[in-house]
């Protein structure tokens, strides 16, 4: 109705959806990169997919920068401004974790022993599912749709499952007879993978609080 008077707000909304699209592309590429490499270490495709993930990550940074500019231009009422900034700040940590995992795999030339394949695959799959649900939850929050709490509960379950896999994996790593140095490398990798679902859970809870806060 008054859209013509709110050009900056409309631009901000577009940017947030663009951010979420790129966020999705990042975790899709990440998944392909990890899965392509897990069974075939140092595969050619890995470098390409890592570069793609980095490209989308840098695109996301550009979007965040433009959003920051708009926010400092006093777009939105202060309350909404703070909510959106906190939300994006929390959400933006996830691509960072994904990048760290790929970075570790590439530069530490990590070869994941076959006996850990399944658990690592499960950990990545469940973590990325949590990210996908989180993306839907954020869209639902922006569009003021119902179901925010249900999304939060699902993400919470995913996070608990990830914690379980993470602990099980670390235990397996340290009871195996691989090189102690590789054990530490793998432990670090698993912890970093676990951070993905932890952060998704934190952001999801924040979205739920923001959604409740917006009710008068």
């Amino acid at each position: 109705m008054f859209k013509i008077f709110f050009k900056k707000e409309n631009r901000l909304e577009e940017l947030i959806y663009k951010y979420l699209e790129n966020f999705q592309l990042i975790y899709e590429n990440f998944e392909k990169a990890v899965f392509s490499c897990i069974s075939e270490p140092h595969c050619k495709e890995f470098n390409f997919l890592k570069e793609q993930t980095d490209k989308y990550e840098s695109k996301v940074d550009d979007i965040i920068e433009e959003i920051n500019d708009l926010m400092y231009g006093k777009v939105l009422i202060p309350d909404s401004r703070e909510d959106i900034m906190n939300l994006l700040h929390g959400l933006d940590k996830i691509p960072g974790y994904l990048e760290i995992v790929l970075f570790m795999m590439q530069y530490q030339k990590l070869v994941i022993p076959e006996k850990f394949f399944k658990d690592i695959q499960d950990l990545i799959k469940v973590s990325l599912e949590a990210c996908e649900i989180l993306s839907k939850q954020v869209v639902g929050f922006i569009k003021k749709e119902t179901g925010t709490r249900a999304f939060m509960n699902t993400i919470d379950k995913h996070e608990s499952h990830c914690d379980y896999i993470e602990k099980k994996l670390i235990q397996k790593i340290f009871t195996s007879n691989i090189d102690p140095f590789v054990k530490l490398q793998l432990k670090e990798l698993v912890i970093c993978m676990g951070d993905i679902s932890d952060q998704a859970d934190r952001v999801s809870k924040m979205v739920n609080i923001l959604s409740m806060k917006r009710r008068v």
């Binding site: 008054f2 859209k3 008077f5 709110f6 707000e9 409309n10 901000l12 909304e13 939105l76 009422i77 909404s80 909510d83 959106i84 929050f141 922006i142 569009k143 003021k144 917006r214 009710r215 008068v216």
Partner: peptide
Amino acid sequence: LAFVYNHLKIGLFGSDQLLRT
């Protein structure tokens, strides 16, 4: 107004624009 606002089918940006207006 709280009842009406809570039942409005408008998103975060719509409600921000509505509040400012």
